[in-house]
Design a binder for these strands. Structure first.
Lengths: 212, 212
DNA sequence: GTCAATCCTGAAACTTGTTCTAGGTTAGCG
DNA sequence: CGCTAACCTAGAACAAGTTTCAGGATTGAC
């Protein structure tokens, strides 16, 4: 039968959800510490050598955790890296909150915000490689986690827009398209097919969808 | 002595470029046939089970080629799948040439064109999964091949726009952003995070960048 | 404080992408 | 024809992600 769509697994969260958003298991202190060690090791290895350098055995050793335990916390390498991205995005969001962009036009504020994020990624291109490749390679089993990243990104963009009331459906569509462009532009940059300048242009172009 | 590697050979293209665009080696008839068998096997397996189902050993067996030979034709699984995508896109381009979209607005024509492509992908979601995941996972070593795919996509969109003269820089920017959105929207659909309707909206939204 | 349930560890095993090797085959060329 | 270089094959070997399992350590509930 050519109809193999995965029957959607009801997510048998055993006890350790990799996303901190779903509090289905409170995690003891030591567990929280383990989780943090793992994420730190992941980011460190990623910074050094990108996606390929994040090897599960090495992450386990570095974070003083057995391989099996690592897999209990993060069921796959992609899960791990997407969680790492969540982590970094969270930082980014806080940083942006402290120093919001000053432009007058909403479109310009969004563009500036994304360019700030882009500059941050340029400082650690290997880390960016690991996170973005994982995000784009993720299959359905990582959907919840990827969705969390997506919501975070949306929040950042909406923040930058600085709306009064709730966003209109049109605005939400624009934000979605901006996110698409953001992710895809990052990929083309990481794989060396687009220059930094080109990414800037693409971001500015898509941000035109906002006001008008 | 640990220094036996040959003096250095910049791009020793042995004889088998995986992209048919660079005619650096004319390929004999049997070679052409082998290449075609491989691509066919790849597409068949992909149709059955997506990215994961395309296993190099099985591709080799199915296409009656030794594993080493497969790797000589396509230096990695991602190369193979990106080449498969090139192949499919070529078909798509020809098909579209025969029945161009009839809308009056350029934006509408582009949107309709992409929606046609999208519907084609919906008919073989697993094949789409394999090709799109490979495209987005590709690293720098696959850049030339990914670039070929990108140029093909650009050509299809420019065709749909039906321009008189050469495109302006603004139009090219818009096309780039449309491509970004197209790729990223496909990913969100494939991973089950966006509905078909949502993809349609995103495409229509980004196409607004064209006229105006 | 004891006990059962759960978690963690260490190590081996399994899977699939990729590389390597030794020998047979093919294509052009004198 | 016969030679040589490049190509192809079969198969082993290697690398890294993932799974599994037996046993020791923690934890939470009584």
């Amino acid at each position: 039968m050519p109809t193999p769509p995965p029957p959607s697994q009801p997510s048998s969260s055993p006890s350790l959800p990799s996303s901190p958003s779903s509090p289905s298991a409170p995690l003891t202190e030591r567990q929280e510490a383990r989780r943090r060690r793992i994420l730190q090791a992941s980011a460190r290895l990623a910074r050094r050598g990108g996606f390929d350098a994040v090897q599960m055995r090495e992450v386990a050793e570095t974070s003083n955790v057995a391989l099996g335990t690592l897999y209990r916390y993060f069921p796959s390498k992609v899960h791990l890296l997407v969680a790492t991205m969540q982590d970094q995005l969270q930082h980014m969001h806080e940083t942006l909150h402290k120093r919001p962009p000053q432009e007058t036009e909403a479109a310009a504020r969004v563009a500036e915000t994304l360019m700030r994020a882009f500059r941050a990624l340029q400082r650690e291109p290997q880390l960016a490689d690991a996170m973005v490749r994982a995000l784009n390679f993720a299959d359905r089993s990582v959907s919840p986690e990827v969705d969390t990243v997506s919501r975070l990104t949306t929040a950042i963009i909406l923040d930058a827009m600085g709306l009064e009331g709730p966003p209109t459906p049109e605005q939400l569509s624009a934000v979605r398209v901006i996110e698409h462009t953001w992710h895809s532009a990052l990929i083309t940059w990481l794989s060396g097919r687009a220059s930094i300048a080109q990414v800037k242009i693409d971001i500015e172009t898509v941000c035109r969808l906002i006001d008008e």
